[in-house]
Amino acid sequence: MTDEQLLIQLKDVNPAALETLIYRYHAPIYAYISRLVRNPHIAEDLTQECFTRICLAVRDGRLPVSIRPWIYRIATNLCKDLWKKASHRNEVPTDEQELSTKPDRDTVSSILIRQWEREEVISALAQLSEDSRQIVVLRYYQDLKLQEISEIVDMPLSTVKSKLYQALRKMARILEEKEVARSG
């Protein structure tokens, strides 16, 4: 069933359609929010809130033209709301949980190398503006089309393209500098 077909079913407030929608988008939305907020518990809460809003919108017949950008937009807005809260800004996320969940077959050194590399990416992403970070995550990790991203972040397509390119360049430069600093 395509998203368009799903949308038709959702207009009839079909519980099976909503179930399908949650099955389809739960994992990607959770991953998206996790990458943006970097806290599994907050990500879980926001994901649930995101789907609650979707559910209530379906119930009240407030449906969009296109599902995917709509869901991501709700998720993005929830993250923005979170960032606006002063309490969240003081939180320092850790990756201890991820470290402890690596498969057993990995060696300690390979886990550590991957973890350092991961932290470098996260650190590079963190140096981007909020908008740019969202765009990079949406395009690279969530595999959304540029047009969809443009709808989600409410920016013209050209601006999205420009910001994405600048963000990738900046990240590449940061990572290169780190590489040079480490080897030099």
Binding site: S34, E44, T101, R114, E120, V121, I122, L125, M171
Partner: peptide, 17 residues
């Protein structure tokens, strides 16, 4: 630099429910 970026970006995995 982009090659290096391409190598590292997949490292940022996210947990899945």
């Amino acid at each position: 630099s982009f090659i290096r970026l391409g190598e590292l970006m997949p490292r940022f995995t996210a947990p899945e429910p």
